[in-house]
Design a binder for these strands. Structure first.
Lengths: 274, 274
DNA sequence: ACACCTTATTCAATATATAGAATACTATTC
DNA sequence: GAATAGTATTCTATATATTGAATAAGGTGT
């Protein structure tokens, strides 16, 4: 690469790094294109994609053609614009069919969101990178806290992040590096955060009081997929709501209920796999 | 490729062809792997994937590692098995957000499934290859006809296929070749089918009386996304139900309602894009 | 505990996917 | 309507992704 891109958008920095390491760079490019098309409000032309991701036009064109052939991307020959195609639904359907966690959490989320008037989430923890919301239940009374199935968050953020830091078995250094990359509404200091992680380890669940989103309290409890709890927790059950309202409705009770639900789920998942 | 695979499963034939043509074969491989993992009831090891798809182990390993890095595939280090990861949900969510057809059809599907006691589908027609179910409404009274969001079908099958054949503007030869590859419960002859396609063109909707699935009648009407109807229809509204029951409940009325709904949707979609 | 078989992973040679320039096409401005 | 600017696409040399063999790791049965 001779000429440095004008505005290396952070995203394309990460992409560039992945490309060098990988033995299948076309796949990283394809993933980047798919995510970009997902984010975009409108269909995009080749040039727009190239600019945003810092790719070579010809290469990008081949990637797009392959994705069109695989029915993951739709191409409008008139406007020469690309967008996501319905093919991505097929993969999601298959994932949902095979996933026992979603089936098991859903009724629990419904129960808890009703009982405590909060928004409940079930999330998959993919690794140190991201967690993904896989199930949602809204209480209906409170106004809609925007969190949809499929949403991705940085793994160490908010209450769930404290759980992962506490139980993931990662090194201090690694956690610190990742912590520094996080974006919060009201960031805790590293010291504060480490204390909260320690507390999470002690009490078995994590709490975020307005750090991630001002005024919003988040409580999360980890769920493992194997009985002996090796490695990091694979899932979490999460409750979110307006801080003041949650205090009124009994935060301690909610925390207890959440913890008990998470433990039950861990048992159910673990039993399945033995 | 020196040694011919023992059981070239038809799927891997198609894959092999795509690989030769494409300038980004890694993407075709990745797509094949994702679809295989989707179909599979259990997580798969490298060897199993290699065998099924006719790939080279080392290459396949690199593909899998890239897909794991992109969070589309989950890897269990203990069992060394691969499965779909929740990341695929994220793409599906984005597709659903941006898609106006799904939003527009859903209430119509609900209305019609109630009124006629049938299972209603909204489908995307990707091209001559596949159509994909993107919205469903069950009447609840009849037993569940299995059709889920994300399901893929060959584009020319059943009633929707007759619509595509009638209005897609494809050549006789191309249609005939594709027709011969279709699998029906009770296949029509090519002559019969051509007649039915002709009729579909005349009346504006297609009907399948037990050809695709014995005893099940399917009615489909095409929906275009542009006002002037160039190219092939992008979507269809589909009604399915037990043949005898549909006759009892008034097939002509259903056909009329379906056609009118499809026309309204075409107008709404067309108006949007002008 | 050993040998055997299966499966995963690394490694080095080469076929080829990729980058960059050249070309064709489309839209816009004067 | 010609000229211009922007975009998509083709073309070709070369860096590298892919291959097939070699190695390592894991599991199974005796």
């Amino acid at each position: 690469m001779t000429t440095r891109s004008k505005h290396s958008s952070g995203e394309d920095r990460k992409l560039a790094k992945t490309l060098k390491e990988s033995k299948a760079p076309a796949i990283s490019r394809a993933a980047a294109v798919l995510r970009l098309l997902g984010k975009s409000e409108t269909p995009l032309g080749l040039q727009a994609i190239v600019r945003e991701l810092g790719l070579v036009p010809s290469t990008c064109l081949y990637v797009l053609r392959a994705l069109v052939a695989e029915e993951f991307v739709a191409f409008d020959p008139d406007t020469k614009r690309y967008s996501l195609e319905a093919g991505v639904l097929t993969l999601a359907r298959h994932w949902l069919r095979r996933n026992q966690f979603t089936d098991l959490v859903q009724p629990e989320l419904d129960r808890l969101s009703q009982a405590f008037d909060v928004t409940m989430l079930g999330v998959n923890i993919v690794g140190l990178d991201h967690m993904i919301v896989v199930a949602v239940s809204q209480s209906g009374n409170n106004f809609q806290l925007s969190a949809q199935i499929g949403s991705r968050f940085p793994a160490l953020i908010s209450a769930t992040g404290r759980c992962l830091a506490a139980f993931g078995g990662y090194s201090e250094d690694e956690l610190e590096e990742r912590f520094n990359a996080l974006r919060w509404d009201d960031p805790p200091t590293l010291e504060d955060w480490k204390g909260q992680v320690e507390q999470t380890r002690a009490q078995g669940f994590g709490v975020d009081k307005g750090n991630y989103i001002s005024g919003v309290t988040v409580v999360a409890a980890p769920v493992w997929k194997t009985r002996g709890h090796p490695g990091h927790p694979g899932h979490a059950v999460v409750a979110t709501g307006i801080g003041s309202a949650m205090k009124r409705n009994g935060l301690p009770q909610l925390q207890k209920a959440l913890l008990s639900t998470a433990r039950t789920l861990t048992q159910q998942l673990g039993g399945e796999s033995l």
